[in-house]
């Protein structure tokens, strides 16, 4: 009897590590956004645990950093990397694989003016300076699309990140600033700024997957089952974020914004359909933009696309 109990203890010790959830390191671009909060909220809700996954999440300042973290294999998965950046890296032979879409369209982007600005609508923008973050970013492509759609000859200008742009717009150094919800939503609610252009109103942007989730080809080969489980949990978390009453309080606790703002951000700026991970759309126009902004020397071939985009539904 004693021998049997010792054997049980020994078995438990040996099996314990096997029973532990597998850890995946995730690089997430831009902490605090609704779309990039999927791994964090899913982890908090215990959804990833259900799939035997424990996420070790680190936050980067954006797509370029996320991509570097993935390519150096410092992390297993990078979320919310720019589609153009990922395709550009792939075109140069980097072992990068797109495992899902992250954001299709740009409903979270908006362009604003200070409340006292004489600019009242898009028609007033002729000759004015309109900010975007960096050349080739989604803000750059969307504002060029807006210029083409509205046929107003304004002057797009690179203004850097969100806080720097806000400073420049509010101090009158540029006429129109760009922002991505939830940034600036409180200022909108307080009437300090007014929206002039919304990303969701730009037709061409609506049909383009602007951000993707990526992995290193070597990591995909070595950890395919875990990465597939990650995507299952990712989809389930997405459903939960739009159906569970616990989602908004969890996001409020994570991001530090008010419940009203968080609800507004989800319902007005991030329609669920834009976050669906199973399809990457607008590849042709993306690749054209890639060539225009020098991310790509030429559009990827069909074989290259097949190799790079490995979205499993």
């Amino acid at each position: 009897m004693k021998r049997i109990s010792w054997a049980a203890v020994l078995l438990a010790v040996v099996m314990a590590p096997l029973a532990q959830a597998e850890t995946l390191k995730i690089a997430v671009g831009q902490r605090g956004n609704w779309d990039t909060a999927i791994p964090e909220l899913g982890q908090r809700a215990g959804i990833f645990k259900k799939y035997d996954l424990d996420l070790d999440i680190l936050y980067t300042s954006g797509g370029g950093e996320t991509q570097q973290a993935v390519l150096s294999r410092s992390v297993d998965i990078g979320t919310a990397a720019g589609s153009l950046g990922a395709l550009g890296a792939a075109s140069k032979g980097a072992p990068i694989r797109i495992i899902s879409a992250e954001m299709t369209g740009a409903p979270e982007l908006y362009w604003y003016v200070p409340a006292n600005s004489p600019i009242k609508s898009v028609a007033d923008l002729a000759g004015k300076t309109v900010g975007y973050s960096t050349t080739g970013s989604s803000t750059n492509t969307v504002i060029m699309m807006a210029r083409a759609q509205y046929k107003v000859d304004f002057n797009p200008i690179a203004t850097g990140g969100l806080p720097a742009t806000f400073t420049q717009a509010m101090s009158g150094q540029i006429d129109v600033g760009w922002a991505s919800a939830p940034f600036g939503v409180d200022a909108l609610n307080d009437g300090k700024i007014r929206v002039i252009i919304r990303g969701r109103d730009i037709d061409a942007a609506r049909n383009q997957t602007v951000r993707v989730n990526i992995v290193h080809a070597g990591v995909l080969a070595a950890k395919r089952p875990a990465i597939e489980r990650f995507m299952q949990a990712y989809r389930e978390t997405l459903e939960w974020m739009y159906s569970s009453p616990d989602a908004i309080p969890s996001f409020v606790a994570f991001s530090g914004i008010s419940k009203e703002t968080a609800t507004k951000v989800r319902d007005e700026y991030f329609p669920k359909s834009t976050l669906m991970p199973d399809q990457m759309v607008g590849l042709d126009s993306l690749m054209q933009d890639g060539v225009t902004f020098k991310f790509l020397a030429a559009p990827l071939t069909e074989a290259q696309v097949k190799d790079v985009i490995q979205i499993k539904k």
Binding site: G88, T134, G136, G160, K294
Partner: peptide, 16 residues
């Protein structure tokens, strides 16, 4: 995102 080599480094790294 303004000026000389710093801006260039930022843009080139974004383009990989």
């Amino acid at each position: 995102n303004l000026g000389g080599l710093g801006q260039l480094i930022s843009e080139l790294s974004e383009r990989y």
